[in-house]
Each structure stands twice: as structure tokens, then as C-alpha cells.
Design a protein around this nucleic acid. Structure first.
Lengths: 257, 257
DNA sequence: ACTATTATTTCGGTATACCTAAATTTTTGG
DNA sequence: CCAAAAATTTAGGTATACCGAAATAATAGT
């Protein structure tokens, strides 16, 4: 019984397939997958065949790609690794918000299951990473408050920032400069007729030091708006939204002790 | 100007070539290198050609392999990574002595220069790892007390354990069980006529809790004896023994900011 | 409904890093 | 000093994960 551990390429493919469906539910296509991985379409076709052979995805030629239960388990394990690493780098090694993504991207393939669990314990088993993304527990369960993407909300809507996509460090620095982070309260003030630019107001946050431009208006472009999620004010976290096949989420790297 | 970063294989080769000469000075041969890397001799021949093309080693066919200045710089960077990681895992994540080697082996290829330096700073820029091995500083300089391998010392010799090879976790656990660690004081009591088995005595150590078997005798086999180094009692650390080509030791992974 | 465009897969090729087996060089012992 | 043994290299082959170009399938516009 010789089960080869998944290569880091395979881990990346599965993770990207998963994240595509994390905040909406259309399955990913070859071309989208290729774009997100930064590889040629032909590479994706080949690799998807391999993923299918290993029963990590379902795929019929010329149709989109969906994770199997096994694929979802692996993906959640990778997401857990990534987000715990990001949290750790920020809390223990003084990384900033915008630096962590790249480092976590490399480390997630190298660390052992032991490392992950010791790290999680040391952090107090957090359920959110520094960008507000939910961290699956060791069993692959995710708990999170319901939230909506900023560009989908109507003007007038108020809420607390629940997550900020970590894919654009530039944007993260911009938001930080303007005092917007996880838990900042915002209100959607209006929307431009064309170009979809959003105008939002930042409300003075309860605990935070007050800033001269608090409650000022801020113009956000499209890229920014699709990167911010708001939770309804007063919403309490606690609903399980996703979990893997069953049993404990054990990364296949784990040595079977 | 496109300098490819060294692959993790290349990093491993260079590190092993370096460590072979760390405690004696005969250069390593193909076969020894193959054995330590766990690969076939033919793989080494091929790879050594590649290392030579990249000016990391000097090598004439059928003769031993020596690092160039560039190779030494890379090797010291890898050794620094490995030993800082080991120290970190023990001090910050509760790893035991015998668990760290494997984990560090994987991580050393994945972490960024930034990660290494933040980790080092957090640890207070240590100069010794948990096994007593010297950690090169960011410039590749090593400071260490002179010490000798236990099997090279005459009976009667007394000293403080300055390092213990980390290659055999089994041995580390055995030594730990018998209260021997870095800084334990030992005396060489005698040597068996054949088989080279050493008999040593553990002297009560100043700070350590006294144990019922302190000052008792302990039989060490050959493998153990060649894994333990003793520093002369009263020796103070501080001599620079090795340094790279010149300038700051910058891992080639580092992004040139 | 049929063609033009776009999406996807297939096909030959590349680079890395291994392997075994065969050839070659070096070393060693009588 | 010369043959047998040991060390090392070369030759041919494998697996992974990419690529660009060509072929094929799906979709969209008129």
C-alpha cells in the first residue's frame, strides 16, 4: 500500500479550484484555472487528467472542474495550512498584512502536520486569519458569519468588514493607509452610474483611535469593491458552512502514526 | 541578467559537501556524497557536473569534490537556515531535540530570507543550535569554542559536551534518557581494547538537578562516541573559524531589494 | 443553421532529477 | 607491475510539470 503524497503542484491546483467556489458557486473552467495558476491551458488539461486519475476532481472533457470529496478534503487542508501560516507570521514574526501571502504560499507545501497543529495550538486555534478569512479546523469544518461582497450591496447598507481578499498586497496597503481593516464599520453611500466605482463612508469604530478622516468618504474602484466583504452589523458568527467527506482532516503528508 | 535561484537539490548537495568538511578536512568523494544524499552514484556525477557549471564546486573527474567560494557561501547560508530553524522549532514550538532535524530539512528550502532574519532576531541571534552546532551569522561567520570528538580523546580527559550530531534521533533520545545534553560535563574513563567502545563518566553538572545516576559510568558504542564533541573545561567561545568569500551572506533566494 | 470565434484538448518537446547497467578509470594486493 | 576490485563516469531510460502549436469541440452572432 504505497500512497504517494500529493505533489505541491497538485496541492496548488486543488487549492485554486476550491477557492474559486469559496465565495460563489459556479465551478471553475480550464482557462480560469490556468490564469489563476499562471500556467498554459495545455498544462491544465494534462494536470486535470492526473487529478482525475487520483480521484481528486470530477471532470468531463470541455466542461468545468469540480472537486470530489477527497479533493475537498485536500483543499481544506491546504487552506487551513495557508491561513494558519498567515496568522502565525503576523502574530509571531511581525509580518505585515500584505507580506504574508507569498511566504505562506511557499511554506504551506513544506510544513508537516505536526508543525501545523503545534502552530495552531500556540495561536489558540484561531478561526480567522488576518484578512478575516475563515480557517477550517483540523476536521475541515468552517465557521463563519454570513457576509456579502461590497459590490453586491445596495447603497445605504451598513456593516462590519468581515474579510478582505489577500490577493493584492497593493490594495491591502491602500486600505490600511485609509484605516480600513477587518472589523472596520463601513456604509455604502452610493455607486457611480458607469465604471461601478463605489463610494463608501468609514464610520468611527468603537475601539479604534479616532482619525481625522473618520466618517469621511472614500472612493473605491471595482477591484477594491470585489475584494471587501461586509458582515451585517450584529451578526454573530457560528454557522458551519462547509465540511469535507468525513472523519478528521488529515493532510496526506502526515505520516500514518 | 537572469540568475536562476538554486534548486533545493542543489542546496542539498552543497550543504552535504560542506558538512563533510565541517569537523575534519578531507574533501568528500562521489560515493560518500551519494551515500549521504541517499541517491545513486550516477546521480551524483551528473549533478556535480551541474554544480561545476554553476561554479559552486571544483571537480576533476575521479577526484574528490571541493566547494568554491560561491559554494561555501551558499552552504553556510543553508547551514544557517537549518540551525536557526531547529533552534526556533525547539524554543518556540515545543519540538524535542530529536524531532527537529527532519522538519528543518524541509523548511530550509522553503523559507525566505526575510523569514530567516525575523526568526533570528526573535531568538536573539543565537550562535548555537539545540545540538550545540554553531549557527553562522548573516555574514557567514562562525564563532565556536575549540572541541574534539569523544573518540579522539584519551582516557582521563574531562570536558563539557559542546555538540552532539543530530543525524540519529534514536541516539539523541538515548543520550537524553541518560541525562546527557549540550553542556553536560563528562570524563573519558577508558576504552575497550577492541570494538572501540568507550566508557565515560557523567559528572554532576553545576546547574542541573542532581540525578541518582550522576557520576555513574556509561558505555558508549562507536556510533555514539563519534557523535559527541567535548570542549575543554574553561574554554571560552569566540574564535572565528570560517567565513565565506566576502560581503554579507545573502541567500540567492533573496529578492534583490 | 451555419460560420466565426473562443475554449479546450492533443501532440511533440524541454528541463530537472532521478534510476540501472555498462564502460572506464583508479587503486590495491600479490 | 599487473590483474582484480573498487570507484567513478557515461549511456539510455523514467516521471513530473511545464511549454507552444495544431487539432477539435463548443458557443455565439447573424
Amino acid at each position: 500500500m504505497k500512497t504517494t503524497p500529493p505533489s505541491s503542484s497538485i496541492e496548488d491546483y486543488v487549492k485554486v479550484i476550491y477557492s474559486f467556489t469559496e465565495w460563489q458557486d459556479k465551478p471553475i473552467t480550464s482557462t480560469q484555472l490556468a490564469a489563476r495558476l499562471g500556467v498554459a491551458n495545455s498544462s491544465v488539461s494534462e494536470m486535470v487528467r492526473k487529478l482525475k486519475d487520483q480521484d481528486l476532481v470530477e471532470h468531463e472533457p470541455y466542461s468545468p472542474i469540480r472537486l470530489t470529496a477527497a479533493g475537498l478534503t485536500l483543499a481544506l487542508s491546504m487552506v487551513r495550512r495557508h491561513r494558519l501560516l498567515e496568522t502565525y507570521l503576523v502574530r509571531e514574526l511581525g509580518y505585515t498584512w500584505d507580506e504574508v501571502h507569498e511566504e505562506a504560499e511557499l511554506l504551506e507545501h513544506a510544513v508537516s502536520e505536526t508543525f501545523i497543529e503545534r502552530m495552531s495550538a500556540k495561536l489558540g486555534n484561531p478561526t480567522r486569519d488576518p484578512h478575516g478569512d475563515p480557517i477550517p479546523d483540523a476536521g475541515g469544518h468552517i465557521t463563519m458569519a454570513p457576509s456579502h461582497r461590497l459590490d453586491e450591496l445596495d447603497p445605504g447598507h451598513r456593516g462590519r468588514v468581515s474579510r478582505i481578499s489577500d490577493h493584492d498586497p497593493e490594495l491591502l496597503r491602500y486600505l490600511e493607509q485609509h484605516g480600513i481593516g477587518v472589523d472596520t464599520e463601513l456604509q455604502v453611500v452610493g455607486r457611480r452610474p458607469f465604471g461601478g466605482t463605489l463610494v463608501i463612508a468609514r464610520l468611527p469604530s468603537p475601539g479604534a483611535p479616532s482619525r481625522t478622516d473618520d466618517a469621511g468618504h472614500l472612493d473605491l474602484g471595482d477591484e477594491a469593491a470585489v475584494s471587501l466583504w461586509l458582515a451585517t452589523v450584529g451578526t454573530h458568527p457560528g454557522c458551519t458552512v462547509q465540511e469535507p467527506a468525513g472523519g478528521t482532516l488529515m493532510h496526506p503528508h502526515a505520516t500514518g502514526v
